[in-house]
Amino acid sequence: MYNQNLLKSLLEKINIKDQEKLEKIEIYIENLKKWNKIMNLTSKHFDIINHIQDSLMFFEVVENKSGNLIDIGSGNGFPAIILAILCNKLNITMVESNTKKSIFLKDTIHKLQIQANVLNIDILNIKTEKKFEYATIRGLKCNYKMQKIIHSLLLNKQGKLIVWSYPPPLLKYFTLLNSISKNNKYIHVYAKEQVEQQPI
């Protein structure tokens, strides 16, 4: 369960007072509960408000931004679904290797009529010509292979990686821009480095 007034209060703190967006978040929560009876999308002691709070930390980084965002390991939809509801200018791609979770994400997107799509694939096997202004990772270890893939997906000079973890991971292909401690010590923003081409 969750407290609707607490949800409204969280959104008001970031100047979101749009009733339609609040209703869409509530539809998402109800759909998550419905699907959770069929498959394990969340843990036994899952706290929806905490996950929304974490998602809103990502929102603070991309608020009013436009372009393409790729969310890696979208799972139960945090933060990607929340960002898709709140950020009308972003085109969001969710990458999820688990087929059942991908079906849940597609069903949620359809119900909410939001601007997003789902790729049912492991990020290490992704093949796309599309370039992204932003990549997001929440609670997923960004190993060396994943770094290389994300680096190739992000736009030169503009691409940013937003990571939820503690402490900030050391990433070879990225420069740590800042750790946002104002509201959440777990959010870190990285810039894509220009890696020189290695000789063959």
Results as ranks from 00 to 15, higher is better:
residue 88 N to R: 08
residue 57 M to N: 13
residue 122 D to A: 06
residue 78 F to A: 05
residue 48 I to E: 01
residue 128 T to A: 09
residue 90 L to Y: 05
residue 82 I to E: 00
residue 107 D to S: 14
residue 135 A to F: 12
residue 106 K to G: 03
residue 141 K to I: 10
residue 126 I to D: 02
residue 128 T to K: 11
residue 108 T to F: 02
residue 91 N to K: 10
residue 68 N to W: 07
residue 33 K to M: 05
residue 109 I to P: 08
residue 144 Y to I: 12
residue 97 S to E: 06
residue 154 L to N: 04
residue 130 K to G: 04
residue 148 K to Y: 09
residue 112 L to G: 07
residue 76 N to V: 00
residue 62 V to P: 05
residue 50 N to F: 00
residue 98 N to A: 02
residue 109 I to H: 02
residue 160 K to D: 01
residue 75 G to N: 01
residue 140 L to Y: 14
residue 164 W to T: 02
residue 130 K to R: 15
residue 42 T to L: 08
residue 93 T to Q: 04
residue 49 I to V: 13
residue 66 S to R: 06
residue 124 L to H: 08
residue 92 I to K: 01
residue 153 L to N: 10
residue 86 L to C: 08
residue 43 S to L: 05
residue 147 Q to V: 02
residue 68 N to Y: 15
residue 58 F to G: 00
residue 109 I to G: 01
residue 94 M to V: 06
residue 67 G to K: 11
residue 129 E to G: 14
residue 35 W to P: 01
residue 144 Y to Q: 13
residue 152 S to L: 06
residue 74 S to K: 10
residue 77 G to A: 07
residue 67 G to L: 05
residue 103 I to D: 04
residue 40 N to C: 08
residue 88 N to V: 00
residue 91 N to D: 07
residue 113 Q to I: 07
residue 31 N to A: 03
residue 113 Q to W: 03
residue 122 D to G: 00
residue 136 T to Q: 08
residue 140 L to H: 13
residue 158 Q to H: 11
residue 26 E to K: 08
residue 110 H to N: 14
residue 81 I to V: 15
residue 39 M to E: 00
residue 34 K to S: 12
residue 83 L to H: 03
residue 128 T to M: 12
residue 78 F to L: 09
residue 143 N to P: 07
residue 111 K to M: 11
residue 145 K to Y: 07
residue 82 I to G: 03
residue 86 L to Q: 06
residue 60 E to T: 06
residue 142 C to Y: 12
residue 42 T to C: 10
residue 149 I to F: 06
residue 68 N to M: 06
residue 93 T to Y: 06
residue 108 T to V: 15
residue 121 I to A: 10
residue 31 N to V: 00
